[in-house]
């Protein structure tokens, strides 16, 4: 046992220097999108952004989910945020993120993204060992950036269209592609992983933690939107598209 400990410690020590400057953003990694506002200076054509043939049903489930949020998830999350210790919260967050890392590793690999695979593997390795199973996010401390890749993004990377926007009760917003892909991710194990800004994660402590950090912004969006449903839909689809095209911060 002691022998293994030293071997692992040695390997970790070897690995660290390689990661120290990983945080510096390099110019060639920044991807941009030239949004096509739709030949629109004089409004030549409609800008087609959303494919939402199930809008009627979606709005129904969206309202239902909003009620679940208002009466259940929101109060629980606010209690969690205000009354549980900070260390408990960071543990919940770090452990759930660590558990999900293999999904990122696998999908970064499937997309042939060596750098993300490498860094995510490094994260998983460092946090599972020195980070005591993910309780401490040591990887971030040494400058190993977090990434998020799931099977929906992999399919998108290889050209599979998102398909119709679908809101399901409890599970929240998604698209046909991502909903089907979610099954593959959860068979990799561990977690139903759909992580746009507005999450459709399954209920659990991870959900509460995630929601507790979004609740303020969601409240404000609801308050300042003239069509909350359309607002969230646009938000979700754009953010997802950015994730597929690797244009986000992680």
């Amino acid at each position: 046992m002691t022998k293994y400990f030293f071997v692992i410690a040695f390997i970790i020590t070897l690995s660290l220097p390689r990661y120290v400057h990983a945080q510096d953003v390099k110019l060639d990694e920044i991807k941009f999108v030239d949004i096509d506002y739709g030949a629109n200076e004089e409004g030549e054509e409609a800008y087609v952004e959303v494919y939402d043939p199930l809008e009627g049903m979606n709005r129904l489930f969206f309202d239902f989910n909003d009620m679940v949020h208002v009466y259940l998830l929101r109060p629980v999350s606010i209690f969690y945020k205000d009354y549980t210790p900070g260390f408990f919260q960071s543990t919940v967050r770090n452990v759930t993120q660590n558990i999900m890392t293999p999904i990122t590793i696998l999908n970064a690999l499937l997309q042939g993204d060596i750098k993300k695979t490498d860094e995510s593997f490094g994260r998983f390795f460092v946090n599972s060992t020195i980070g005591l199973g993910g309780i401490f996010d040591v990887a971030s401390e040494i400058g190993l950036p977090k990434h998020d890749e799931d099977f929906g993004q992999t399919l998108g990377y290889y050209g599979v269209e998102a398909g119709p926007y679908i809101v399901l009760p409890i599970l929240g917003p998604s698209t046909l592609r991502d909903r089907l892909a979610g099954g593959v991710d959860s068979s990799v194990g561990l977690y139903n992983h759909i992580d746009a800004n507005y999450s459709g994660r399954l209920f659990g402590l991870g959900t509460v933690d995630f929601y507790s950090r979004q609740v303020g912004m969601l409240d404000k969006m609801k308050e300042t939107s003239i069509d909350y449903y359309a607002s969230i839909r646009s938000f979700y689809l754009q953010n997802r598209e950015g994730a597929v095209k690797n244009r986000l911060s992680r």
């Binding site: 607002s231 953010n239 950015g242």
Partner: peptide
Amino acid sequence: EGVSMIVS
């Protein structure tokens, strides 16, 4: 994070 104010 990929979400355009104009598009939204």
